[in-house]
Nucleic acid binder design. Structure first.
Length: 311
DNA sequence: TCCGTAAGGTATCAG
DNA sequence: CTGATACCTTACGGA
């Protein structure tokens, strides 16, 4: 086993690990004391994921290789501990985007009372940089679902169809390979509770298994990438934006979900256009170069209960 | 205990 | 190309 620590001085703006991993960006980590997403996040717990990459460019998780386990927890000093089946210091920095300067990002954000409140209320919330294919499947599952249940669905997929890996005396499961998901078939996926998403996941997994990989969008211009991603079954503009933002490093992407749509109507009505593409463009212009970061803070702020009394 | 509603939307089909 | 509708399942809140 490899272990390491990350000095808080090397994390500009700090990190709230539980918030970052349970804020609805990533569904690929589980908390040691349970499935997570069902209670208050707790960054002092070990969070575990399984990955096939050991340090890849954004969204460029290797498409083959043995699954490897990575665990991270928050230290009392604000730094991080990690444990893994491979050297992982660089991987942790990359996945949790520890080089992003949160204070600078907050300073660049537009001066708006709700945006300011969102940054103040959720210090240490970071964007994540997850592998593209599991993120694609997770967000196909996300339509018309609550955050906690999306995590439950992904966890069920892993447990039932993912390769088991031994680590520290326990068994954890990798995200199922595209081949395995495709082979499972629509009926099996319906049994796992995916509902009408089952055929979408099966068909998209088949496309990936046949060589059309979502990470291939990483080198495109942002709007081209979003459009290209919608070729996967079950992927419209919103899900494509989630993959672009949370897995492919397109920091300008602003997934227009129901929460953000409401925020647009109430806070930025002049950004409300006739199409997704035009509204997206207007909102990106309004939110600035870190539009994706601002969106993530807004989404989390609006979604949490305290937001109801914040404004 | 039971039922209506809504949950990080998308595919499909008219007009 | 734009607008309306069905869609699986589950976890809630109100009767």
């Amino acid at each position: 086993m490899h272990t390491g620590t990350i000095d808080p001085a090397t994390i500009p703006g700090g990190i709230d690990l539980g918030l970052t991993l349970e804020s609805g960006q990533s569904y690929l980590w589980t908390r040691a004391d349970g499935d997570g997403y069902t209670g208050d996040p707790d960054g002092s717990q070990w969070y575990t994921t399984v990955t096939r990459a050991a340090g890849a460019p954004p969204g460029g998780e290797s498409r083959e290789g043995d699954p490897r386990v990575l665990q991270v927890r928050e230290r009392p000093d604000g730094g991080l501990d990690w444990r893994a089946t491979m050297p992982a210091a660089a991987l942790v920095r990359e996945r949790l985007r520890l080089d992003d300067d949160l204070d600078a990002i907050a300073a660049r954000a537009p001066s708006d009372p709700v945006i300011g409140a969102a940054f103040d209320a959720h210090r240490g919330l970071r964007l994540i940089d997850d592998p593209a294919y599991p993120t694609l499947i997770a967000f196909i599952c996300s339509t018309q679902m609550r955050v906690a249940r999306i995590h439950g669905m992904v966890t069920d997929l892993r447990r039932d169809l993912g390769d088991p890996v031994e680590f520290d005396g326990a068994t954890v499961h990798a995200f199922p390979t595209p081949e395995r998901l495709a082979a499972a078939g629509e009926d099996r996926l319906r049994e796992l509770g995916l509902g009408y998403r089952a055929p979408y996941v099966a068909e998209t997994a088949r496309m990936v298994a046949d060589g059309t990989h979502p990470a291939d969008a990483a080198g495109m211009q942002y709007e081209d990438a979003r459009e290209w991603l919608t070729r996967f079954v079950g992927v419209g503009d919103k899900v494509a934006d989630c993959v672009a933002l949370f897995a492919l490093g397109f920091d300008e992407a602003v997934p227009l979900d129901t929460w953000i749509q409401t925020a647009i109507e109430e806070r930025f009505p002049d950004c409300d256009r006739d199409s997704y593409a035009e509204t997206s463009r207007a909102l990106r212009d309004r939110l600035g170069p870190d539009a994706g970061y601002v969106q993530t803070y807004l989404f989390h702020h609006l979604r949490t209960a305290e937001a109801a009394t914040a404004d």
